[in-house]
Design a protein around this nucleic acid. Structure first.
Length: 432
DNA sequence: TCTGGGGTCCTAGGACCC
DNA sequence: TCTGGGGTCCTAGGACCC
């Protein structure tokens, strides 16, 4: 038995904890670069704002409907997430932190009324962190996800499901006819693992509700679609096919990519950007104690513009696996020089570290032709601790440009709230 | 004017091996 | 005249997730 707990409209809810004036009004949180809406309050959803809606298309709602938009404040959301996750751990034996706002919890053998336990957990999270949540429970992870969808929808849209399923929904506790009614009232596109593409194909095959999906034969689903969809069908039928991952595996690739605040055509600002992306990626790599054997650099124009398009990437193999910022930056810049062409309005660039392996498993080599490169792991450790203590960007590679002058390529963040919980200077002051 | 970032898994097809 | 079968590894691309 599994539970899935997630924060309602998570980023918006984090902002509301520190700015109660945002309660009961339409609020969206914008993606990096203030590009599009990535979180919406219920009031914003009611205005018809879709997930991912470009900001320039909805900004008129500021005047006409009192919409408030905020730039994403990931330092705040990450810290609020840590607080919420540590509470959620108390719900069962093992916990998988699935995303910034979701956890699966294994519930087998937990005595007592699970629905009541779920309601108590919601109340505790709300009282201790200020964050509203919903909880779904079921025999498999896919059913728990589905139950969570039912819990949220029943709360937000009265009449869509029986009211006693709001906020906490345990599919395993329903009578058979009640479960079938829930399945019949839910579209296949709400199922975890079914995206727009497969959803369309299912509907063309006459399968539009979860109830119809659960009646398909898994083997035929595998032949017609794939083993992935077969697992989804079996999970909906109650057979666990996806295990809980209580200790997250090391990443197999690490990326740092950004859209620019404004178009870039010159090489020099691109070098600064690529330097900073590679440095940041190297930092993440060292945090998981791994080395990269290849690095990919890419640049591209905006596919939304009518301008001449340019999009290229290049994979640069390293002589030996490394997590050294200088080595990775140098390789990334070599890649950039190979693919850069003047005259294009570039909108985005990025760096990806590939072919990762744990530092402890790296293949040693015979020093035949020349001496091995100097070991700079202590230098990197010092760099990381300085940047952690005094703030990101305290120590930079020279090709990243000096920290003082404003950079045209950095992203737009015109509406970011303070880092209330992670910077001393930003801690809110309570008036007496 | 203006459209995010960071991941995973699966499959098909080519190259190569014996 | 007549040219196999079985396997692995790698890569690119598709689909999905939040």
């Amino acid at each position: 038995m599994y539970a899935l707990i997630d924060g309602n409209n998570f980023y918006v809810s984090c902002e509301r904890v520190f700015r109660p004036s945002l309660n009961n009004i339409p609020v969206v949180v914008l993606s990096n670069n203030d590009g599009c809406a990535i979180a919406r309050s219920n009031e914003a959803k009611a205005l018809g704002i879709k997930m991912g809606a470009p900001w320039f298309q909805i900004r008129h709602l500021q005047e006409s409907a009192g919409l408030v938009a905020l730039s994403a404040n990931f330092a705040l959301y990450g810290d609020m997430s840590d607080r919420m996750m540590s509470l959620i751990g108390g719900l069962g034996h093992t916990q998988e932190v699935y995303s910034i706002d979701e956890s699966f919890v294994e519930l087998s053998g937990i005595p007592g009324d699970l629905v009541e336990r779920g309601h108590r957990m919601r109340e505790r999270i709300l009282r201790w962190t200020g964050l509203p949540t919903c909880i779904g429970m079921g025999a498999t992870k896919t059913l728990a996800k589905l139950a969570n969808h039912v819990a949220k929808t029943a709360e937000r849209k009265p009449g869509s499901y029986p009211p006693h399923l709001a906020a906490v929904c345990h599919l395993g506790a329903l009578a058979a006819h009640e479960l079938q009614a829930v399945f019949a009232a839910t579209a296949v596109t709400e199922v975890w693992g079914i995206g727009p593409r497969i959803g369309r194909q299912l509907q063309e095959a006459g399968v539009s509700t979860v109830q119809e999906l659960t009646q398909l034969d898994p083997a035929s689903v595998r032949r017609r679609w794939s083993v992935v969809l077969e697992r989804t069908v079996r999970e909906l039928q109650g057979l666990p096919c996806i295990a809980l991952e209580d200790c997250p595996p090391a990443k197999q690739e690490i990326a740092c990519t950004r859209s620019f605040g404004q178009a870039v055509t010159e090489l020099q600002p691109l070098e600064e950007a690529i330097t900073s992306f590679a440095s940041r990626a190297a930092e993440k790599l060292r945090r998981q104690d791994s080395l990269a054997a290849q690095i990919l650099t890419f640049i591209r124009t905006s596919p939304f513009r009518a301008d001449r398009q340019y999009s290229r990437s290049i994979l640069v193999p390293l002589e030996r696996p490394s997590s050294d910022t200088a080595v990775l930056v140098q390789a990334a810049l070599a890649g950039l020089h190979a693919i850069y062409r003047p005259g294009y309005k570039l909108a985005k660039a990025g760096v990806m570290l590939l072919d990762l392996c744990p530092t402890s498993l790296v293949q040693e080599e015979l020093a035949l032709a020349h001496d091995p490169p100097p070991d700079r792991s202590r230098l990197m450790a010092a760099l990381d601790s300085l940047n952690q203590r005094y703030g990101r960007g305290t120590i930079l590679m020279g090709s990243g440009g000096t920290g003082n002058q404003p950079k045209l390529w950095t992203m737009k963040q015109e509406r970011r709230t303070p880092r209330y919980t992670t910077r001393l200077a930003d801690i809110p002051v309570a008036a007496a």
